[in-house]
Computed example of a mutant assay.
Amino acid sequence: MRLEPEPNRWAFPPADTADENGLVGIGADLAPGTLLAAYRTGLFPMTLGDTNKLGWWSPDPRGVLPLDELRVTRSLRRSVQRYRVTVDVAFADVIDACRTIDRPHGWITPDIREAYVRLHRLGWAHSVEAWTQDGELVGGLYGVSIGGLFAGESMFHIDRDASKVALVSLVARLAHGNVPRLLDVQWATGHLQTLGVVEISRNEYLSRLERALEQPFPPWRC
């Protein structure tokens, strides 16, 4: 069940006013209504470097994963059979695992962690988890889902291919019904490009976003 939060009280600049780094503005807050308004206009939050200042971003180009272009190798198909996949069973554990990964530009601050847990409780943020047969959480991802948009935020793995298995499951859910849903990954890293992620212009992203937001929410637990 989804609960609509208090309306956003901030006025975001248009996404196409971003600077050369993709930064649109600084400030606002991480209230559920603020986050949903940002995603609906093509923005997402991330802190500025080592500061606690909150930035709102719209990179150009933007990384997206076309649902029919996910690259599933033979070894990944075998891994799909090795793990048990669930959805929304361990959201807080997934985001905590993503936080603890040693990344050069970690952005999941305690405030951001709490904001997305709150959004999850309202039914707007979701996780996909990969477990061993012994019940150990070894991979997963989380993000925000609005209409036909899934804005992927982060993923982690402890065992080989575990996060990829979660991604395979996510794509299957988003592809249900053959409607133009959008899987946003923000920036197209080299690793993500090996999975089929491509770069599109900001204008193209905003056009696809507009269409995706008109689509129905996918059957998350199919």
Rank of each mutant, 00 (worst) to 15 (best):
D50I: 11
T51E: 13
N52H: 14
K53W: 15
K53Q: 15
L54I: 12
L54N: 03
L54Y: 14
G55C: 12
G55D: 04
G55E: 13
D60I: 04
P61Q: 04
G63S: 02
L65T: 04
L65S: 03
L65K: 01
L65W: 02
L67K: 00
D68V: 10
E69C: 06
E69L: 02
E69G: 01
L70T: 10
L70W: 07
L70F: 12
L70R: 08
R71F: 13
R71V: 15
V72N: 03
T73F: 15
T73I: 13
R74D: 10
S75T: 14
S75R: 14
L76D: 01
L76I: 03
R78Y: 06
V80R: 10
R82S: 14
Y83P: 09
Y83I: 03
R84W: 00
T86R: 04
V89I: 01
V89L: 07
A90K: 06
F91P: 03
F91W: 06
D93E: 05
D93S: 06
I95G: 10
I95T: 07
D96H: 13
D96Q: 15
C98P: 10
C98G: 12
T100R: 12
T100G: 04
I101K: 06
P104K: 05
P104C: 01
H105T: 03
W107E: 12
T109M: 02
T109A: 02
P110S: 06
I112M: 15
R113F: 10
R113N: 11
E114C: 13
E114A: 15
A115L: 04
A115G: 06
A115Q: 01
V117R: 11
V117T: 07
R118D: 08
R118M: 02
L119F: 08
L122R: 09
L122E: 08
L122W: 09
L122H: 08
G123N: 11
W124H: 07
A125V: 04
A125I: 05
H126P: 11
H126Q: 09
V128T: 00
A130L: 05
A130S: 15
W131L: 12
D134Y: 14
E136G: 00
L137Y: 08
V138I: 13
G139P: 01
G140K: 08
L141G: 06
Y142Q: 04
G143T: 03
G143I: 08
S145E: 13
S145N: 15
G147Y: 02
G147T: 04
G147Q: 02
G148W: 10
F150C: 10
A151I: 08
A151T: 12
A151F: 08
G152H: 11
M155G: 04
M155L: 05
I158K: 15
I158S: 14
I158W: 11
I158N: 12
I158G: 13
R160C: 12
D161M: 01
D161W: 08
D161I: 12
A162C: 08
K164I: 00
K164D: 00
V165T: 09
V165M: 02
A166E: 00
V168D: 08
S169D: 11
S169T: 06
R173W: 02
R173F: 01
L174F: 07
L174K: 04
A175E: 01
A175H: 09
N178Q: 11
V179I: 08
P180E: 13
L182Q: 01
L182N: 00
L182A: 00
L182H: 03
L183H: 08
D184T: 03
Q186Y: 07
